[in-house]
Amino acid sequence: MTDMTSTAAGMTAAATPRLKSWSWTELLFVAPYLLLYVVFLVYPLGLGFIMSFQYFDLFAGQAEFIGLENYQQLFSDRIFQGAVVNTFKFVIFTVPTFVALGLLIALALNRQTWWAATLRTLFFASNVLSVTIVTLIWRAVYLPQKGLLQNFLDVFGIQNIALLQDPNWALQAIAVTTIWWGIGLPMVLFLAALQQIPGEIYEAAELDNASPWQTLWHITIPSIWRTVVLVTIIQIIAQFQVFGQINLMTAGGPNNSTRSMVQFVYEAGFRQWTAGFASAAAQVLFVIMIVAAGLQFWVSRRKQEF
């Protein structure tokens, strides 16, 4: 038994490369960033975790330990439950679209022509706009009776479309806005990855009479797989944190159909003055994001191993 244990331990030690011990010089180089990271991220994160077990009055600066009460109230809160569902729906609407559409546009525009360069610039241009400008534009698009969308639909005799006032469509409408706003970044990341693929591979595929579909599936996608994973993880993290466009376009309505988890946290913490309760909601969001991103990362690695 002892032998088996020591053998297993020895195998583990052999499999794991020994990490080089750090030196003071190296620590000095990373110290400025490490300090900022600890002060502005690790410390508030820890403080938020502690606050989630307190009744915390942000104004008066008073805190009272209440154990798991915030979490108990949170999980029985109908509005929070709705916010969790809305956030997941939003991630499902947007993340696959960001990945698929971003890749599609990148594939279409990955060529050295003037029109491709113009379109790349156009697609990326929306990325530099602030959330206020984006929501102003899209509110005007979705405006009932007089909006751009309604004017277009009038041609087909479709009337009284009020997407942002319809609980069945409001979240999708915001998802479209978000995709329009943010598609530039996935596109640029995919373009950068596509340009790293050696041309010889495509030449070899051509000599082997590979179809465009076979080339895409067996050469392009595997070659840029790491970028696909990167874009997916970036978008999962970003879309779980959706807030600005929802707050400005629908404020969580109609009928609570667009309230996201971050908006819930914001409202509970700053508007409703229940910072401890908001912190509990923030911890739940944090765990969901870690699990979702981790799961995606794990699945991607497994797929890569095949």
Binding site: D57, Q73, R78, G253, P254, N255, N256
Partner: peptide
């Protein structure tokens, strides 16, 4: 109530939900 006015829920549901939200929130305050 606006949700009820727009036929997204019944009047009874809207009043019950409004009352629940207000009272849950007020009970949370110290």
């Amino acid at each position: 109530l606006l949700a009820a006015l727009q036929d997204q829920k019944s009047t009874d549901e809207a009043f019950a939900a409004a009352e629940e939200r207000v009272n849950t929130y007020l009970s949370r305050l110290r």
